[in-house]
Design a protein around this nucleic acid. Structure first.
Length: 508
DNA sequence: CGCAGGGTCTAGCGACGGTA
DNA sequence: TACCGTCGCTAGACCCTGCG
């Protein structure tokens, strides 16, 4: 979106080509508001030479020498080396953390702003059309009327004469809009009448789409992918970034935005690579990948990598804490003459550890959302199973009916459990290996331990973990040890069903 | 890359016409 | 007449492209 400050910048501070290049930069932002600068691409997109594109980029990214207006002194873009070479972030516009629905005025990225005809216009004509586009964004009307007076005072270097010649120019060059001067109460207005479809044609965020396409291409997967696949992948990826922005806002971890978003970006890129390598493997008798299954796969990969990322952060945190401890331990032997330095270092290490902990909390809450929904699913499934079984028992259904129902439910529960296991075992392995806890043979035991660990890590609240454990083990009184044996309390009546692979004990 | 050169913009000045 | 806003003109700065 062309936010208000960018809009004003375009109306006041740029020349004709700079106008196009600024619009290019706005259109080529990724989800984080970063742009990869490729001057050849810019030159091609904006109909100029690579050399001049470089010059403009240099200008847009350096402090402007004009003294008076503040916006002009602020460079339009600044280098963002954290995200890679040639990556710049837009200095104007709303950052992802500032945006709240409805809080910002903006101009939509109409397609016509990016056409060759538009780019060939003089700066005055471009400014007039941008003002009209702003109006069209806010009131959806294809007819825009703007007072001469407004243009004179609101747009730099806009005289009557320039308006008239710009209108002639627009009428000659642009076939999607007709302009004229109309009068109301002796006031001259500029009237723009756009073709109806123009107001609905926007350019989409290409940067992320191009990235996915590029990685698919590099992995040789691009032949098989239709638009549906790309859409599914982009939706999944964007979900993660939105979750990050939300959590950073919620946890007020604004200082960590750059580090965390750079982390998430590289996780996303790595995951896409893994995804397409996976996609390319011969499938055997497996079903064809659907867009949904591909996006679920991506989700799984990203969650795993996020877990690894948390583990890295955790060890950074422990390193700081360890260092702080070392400082204290050294109190007696060293630094006798320099206790202040010692305490400063100690405090610094503790503070850094606390900052890292905050980052961990942000990332954890992203993965937590996913696990929470899986846990809820599991909980619901078990509740449903118990209800069905109790109904069957009350209706004195046959052993076979009960057994078959159990089998169906248990298969489903195991499936969900597998997903959960996969999702959490990494968290446990990576982050708790320090605690020397070996994973047991029994999946149910393992899950129970995971639950404890996860609640000890505050991935789940104690209460949630308790509820889940309760619903898994207490209420239903199901105990599955190594032999998949099921018991339901009410000892007075119980029986066992023998099956070739499963043993059931069931009360009546 | 440097440079030439036409296009474009800015600031400042004075002319002009309308109004109190 | 004094004042105001608008317009056109001009010098000099900046924009942008093409040439070698």
């Amino acid at each position: 979106m062309i936010y208000n400050d960018i809009y004003k910048y375009l109306l006041s501070h740029v020349s004709s080509k700079e106008f196009d290049i600024c619009l290019y930069l706005v259109a080529n932002q990724d989800w984080l508001g970063n742009v990869v600068i490729d001057c050849e691409d810019i030159a091609q997109a904006c109909n100029t030479t690579t050399r001049y594109a470089k010059q403009v980029i240099r200008k847009l990214s350096s402090q402007q020498k004009d003294v008076l207006p503040d916006e002009r002194r602020k460079p339009f873009i600044v280098a963002a080396p954290t995200f890679g070479e040639n990556v710049y972030k837009l200095n104007l516009g709303l950052s992802k953390l500032e945006y709240v629905k409805g809080n910002a005025k903006y101009t939509k990225k109409f397609k016509f702003l990016y056409t060759e005809e538009f780019q060939s216009l003089s700066i005055a004509a471009k400014k007039l059309l941008l003002v009209a586009a702003f109006g069209m964004s806010s009131n959806q009307s294809t007819t825009q009327r703007i007072k001469f007076k407004t243009l004179n005072s609101g747009v730099r270097a806009m005289t009557r004469q320039r308006i008239h010649s710009a209108l002639d120019e627009i009428n000659q060059t642009m076939n999607i809009v007709q302009t004229s001067v109309v009068y109301k109460l002796k006031q001259p207005y500029v009237e723009f009448i756009f073709d109806t479809d123009v107001s609905q044609e926007f350019i989409s965020a290409e940067a992320e789409y191009e990235l996915v396409k590029l990685i698919a291409f590099e992995n040789g997967s691009d032949f098989h992918l239709t638009a549906d696949y790309y859409a599914a992948i982009l939706k999944t990826g964007k979900g993660f970034f939105n979750a990050l922005f939300k959590e950073i806002k919620a946890k007020k971890a604004f200082d960590h935005f750059e580090k965390l978003s750079a982390g998430l970006k590289s996780i996303y890129v790595e995951s896409l690579n893994v995804l397409f390598q996976e996609f390319n493997k011969p499938k055997g008798d497996k079903d064809e990948q659907t867009p949904e299954s591909l996006s679920a796969l991506l989700r799984g990969i990203m969650l795993n990598k996020l877990t690894d990322y948390v583990a890295t952060l955790s060890s950074e945190e422990s390193a700081r804490l360890q260092l702080a401890q070392n400082y204290m331990a050294a109190k007696e032997t060293f630094f006798k003459n320099n206790l202040n330095l010692l305490y400063d270092n100690f405090r610094k290490m503790k503070e850094e550890a606390a900052e890292i902990r905050k980052q961990i909390e942000v990332v954890n809450s992203i993965t937590q959302q996913d696990r929470k929904s899986k846990y809820n699913h599991l909980k619901e499934l078990i509740e449903k199973r118990n209800k069905v079984l109790h109904n069957l028992i009350n209706k004195s259904s046959s052993k076979n009916t009960i057994r078959n129902n159990l089998k169906v439910f248990n298969a489903e529960i195991e499936r969900v459990l597998d997903g959960l296991n996969e999702s959490i075992s990494r968290a446990v392995d990576r982050t708790l290996s320090l605690l020397n806890i070996n994973s047991g043979q029994d999946r149910w035991e393992q899950l129970n331990r995971h639950l404890q660990h996860i609640s000890s890590l505050k991935l789940l609240s104690d209460r949630e973990a308790k509820t889940i454990r309760k619903s898994l083990w207490d209420d239903s009184a199901i105990h599955l040890t190594g032999t998949s044996q099921i018991k339901i309390a009410r000892q007075e009546d119980s029986f066992a069903v023998k099956d070739e692979s499963v043993d059931f004990e069931f009360p009546f």
